[in-house]
Amino acid sequence: MNTELIGVLFILLVTVALASPLGRYVSRVFKGERTLLDFMAPLERFIFRMSRIDPNSPMDWKQNAWAMIKLNVFFFAWAIIILLVQSWLPFWNPNHIGGMSLTQAFHTAVSFATNTNQQHYLGETGASYFTQLLVFGYLQFVSAGTGIAALALVFKGLSSKQTTDLGNFYNLFLKSCTRILLPLAIILAIFLLFMGTPDTFQANATITTLEGHTQTVATGPAAPMVAIKQLGTNGGGFFGVNSAHPFENPNYVTNIAENVAILLIPMALVFAFGFYLERMKLAWIIFGVMMLGFLIPLGVGLHYELHGNPAITKMGVQQPTGYMEGNEVRFGPAATTLWAMSTTTTSNGSVNGMHDSLMPLTGAMAMLNMFMNCNFGGVGVGFLNFFLFLIVAVFIAGLMIGRTPEWLGKKIEGREVTIAALLIILHPLLVLSGTALSTWLITLHSNWDWLNNPGFHGFSEMLYEFTSASANNGSGFEGLIDNTVFWNLSCGFVMLLGRYLPIIGPMAIAGSLASKKKTPDSAGTLPSDSLAFGLITFAVIVFVAALSFFPVLTMGPIAEHVSLFP
């Protein structure tokens, strides 16, 4: 077997092997059981005392939703203020980085508060060390913690017998940060530090190259930020080219570690669901469905990247290692493709190669991952999106066999399905209306030259940008001049709605289900931990994505593919 493919297989196997024990641990944290990290309790108590929050007070779904909104308003305000005034702060800015413009600061603050990390600035020239650490680094923890805590509330709602109490958001949020994200990030950051990722407050270095030219080499406190950016499915790069930069991702070993880190927590949360509800068979079915949704796009991507580009073959250039243009030369096309699929399926958004350069159908697969946005997905929110599809699948399956839809002993009624269905169509609505608006504007104003590529590829760039924003992914197809008033504001708006409504909705559904009486499984119960139900759920996800997005895919990457392979 091709050694590159062995590398891909190795990364996937290591991730799955680590995800199950981590899931068991996460479940124990959510349940408040004893764990190895109980020594964090005094720190947590101190933070709660300072914040005057009672972490044990019961909260219904609305109180939890308000708590989540209030916290996130604070995160946004903190970020936008610092981004605007970073040049005035007298410390941790040795490279004298200036403040951002208002719309860029708005976009960046929204982007990091919503766990999207779409970047319309370059890390080297757009953010001081203070901003990188105390805005971006901080928000990468707390935005990931927000998603995990929201998921924990839903777990509680699904497992409760009959209550309005979903748990305490503040408590779950803080524990997600201190007991899940922080320890893992410390381990990965130390590993990256030893592998060559810098962690310094010194200014950029000026060196003389072998040709005798002078060159500035950007550096900074990168290691801790790179660690949490991968683990928290954030993706915001310390440097402009993200994980294609040799300081962010120095070698093949770090590439393995970071790729594992991208997939680890989203996979572990599926197992955490099984351990929490003591339904491991159901967790494995969900894991299987998600894995199937991940492996199909990966297979298509690997096929096209490893077989080279016919346009290059036509020029008489051999491509024995596959299609290398835009792929990371140090890692090869297979590792770049695996990363591209991992980062888009998990809503991470970091890149180790240029997605703009992927073969057209590989680019389409990256977009498909973000269209579905529920196969593992972002930490916490990926499973919440899958939960919405499960609700609809239970409803459809129930109708098909003529039984009252019921899941985990709770009756699924029209109101839950209404919320789930509305949220499922929100994502296509945001993506398609944004793409339509930008396409209309660029045809109307030919002097608004934000496209570097005309035709199908240019359309794909705009489609990708809105898809990335709505899926809270953050990666870019690039080739798009995106630091403009239109792109900053429109993507900011899409990110806000694409983040918070799909968190609030599942909380509401969980609150509704928690308040219902739990009925024991009987012969009339739809078996949701069966292969058939898994396939129905998979079909619902695929049909929704295909019906919503196939027309735009034909106008972008599919049209480009056909022009390459006539």
Binding site: K62, S101, L102, L489, G492, F493, L496, L501, A508
Partner: peptide, 30 residues
Amino acid sequence: MTILYTLLVLAWAIVLIVGSVTFFDKILKR
């Protein structure tokens, strides 16, 4: 003008997010 556009976008997003809590609650109470 840019300030106005930014504030409008932010305000509209906040209205929709905050409104969604009430909206979902109304759906559940139907």
